[in-house]
Simulated assay, not measured.
Amino acid sequence: MRWLAVLLLVVPLTGCAAKAGDGDGRVQVTAGFYPLAWVAQRVGGADVDVVGLTDPGVEPHDIEPTFARTVALARADLVVVEHGLQPAIDEAVSQNAEGKVLDVTQVVHLMHTGDHTVEHDSGDHDHGPIDPHFWLDPALLADVGDAVAADLSALDPPHATSYAANAAALRADLESLDSAFATGLADCPRHVIVSSHDAFGYWAKYGIEVAPVTGLTPDAEPTPAGIARLQALIRDEGITTVFAERLASPELTDSLARDLGVRTAVLDPVEGLTGDDSDEDYLTLMRANLTALEEANGCTHP
């Protein structure tokens, strides 16, 4: 990426102050991946222009930013990232970002993997003991929304009232979602889920325990001993469903489910949308996840 840093020195920038961008009067925001971009757009509304650094349909862990999007990063008034999740993005930010950088790991407390996983040898954990998938806890994502509003207000004081109101509306939506998860998963005969990778640990607050086929990244390889323990767990716990993920290959989960005669379903870690034309968003994807969990775990409601 060093060549890009040098090249950008000769690209005419419009300055580091807010309202740089394309001259349309909006604050320019760049976000590392979908949940952060969604929050920035919800909070910023019509007063911001948000560019995501991860393409729809692409798994964000190993993304390499394109030249055009790294130029957008350099010209952004606000860059919203999660340090440690996307190493190439971290490097691009350190070398090229000229505006304010909001690292959400300074806003939310990241969970350790041992806090939520079923004891099971699932392979290497590429992120060490820290689980980066905090956005699957709606309450934590609401905290990020408040931080985005504060930064946008500092960059663009005339629209501070709008940013605060948008953040409050976002928090209300996310608190409603949080309540739906708590209520929907409160009365279930099963609480262990088998998923393709260890992305759902933040649902421990709702009583969910995760037994992943692989580690924190979808490309990790499971061990034979780990697979054998998963098979025993599925039998012992009466687990009915093995969960694949929308942006990851279902090969391992399909094979495991087929061998044990259980069904498969999809959980979405909401790391990204499937395409630019998707009519779904964070809220609809999370509510679909809740429905899938309720069905798999036999949850009942009064």
Results as ranks from 00 to 15, higher is better:
301 H>W: 06
81 V>T: 10
74 A>L: 01
25 G>N: 13
65 P>S: 05
157 P>Y: 00
211 A>W: 12
60 P>H: 01
30 T>G: 01
148 V>H: 04
118 V>T: 11
8 L>V: 00
179 S>G: 12
189 P>T: 11
70 T>A: 05
145 G>S: 03
201 G>Q: 14
271 E>R: 10
92 A>W: 09
154 A>G: 07
292 A>G: 06
293 L>Y: 04
25 G>T: 08
50 V>A: 03
72 A>D: 04
64 E>F: 14
31 A>Q: 03
287 R>W: 05
263 R>E: 05
270 V>M: 08
185 L>E: 00
3 W>D: 14
194 V>F: 02
125 H>L: 13
207 G>E: 10
165 A>C: 00
216 L>Y: 07
89 I>W: 09
272 G>W: 04
255 S>Y: 05
61 H>L: 00
211 A>F: 03
274 T>N: 09
171 R>D: 08
53 L>R: 02
33 F>D: 12
4 L>N: 14
299 C>R: 06
98 E>G: 14
128 G>N: 10
251 E>G: 08
235 R>V: 11
100 K>N: 05
97 A>N: 05
103 D>P: 02
263 R>C: 11
27 V>A: 02
255 S>Q: 11
33 F>P: 10
67 F>K: 10
245 E>A: 00
161 T>Y: 04
295 E>S: 15
47 D>L: 00
153 S>N: 08
300 T>L: 13
110 L>S: 01
94 S>R: 14
120 H>S: 13
95 Q>V: 10
223 T>G: 05
86 Q>Y: 07
239 I>R: 11
252 L>S: 03
70 T>L: 07
127 H>N: 13
96 N>V: 04
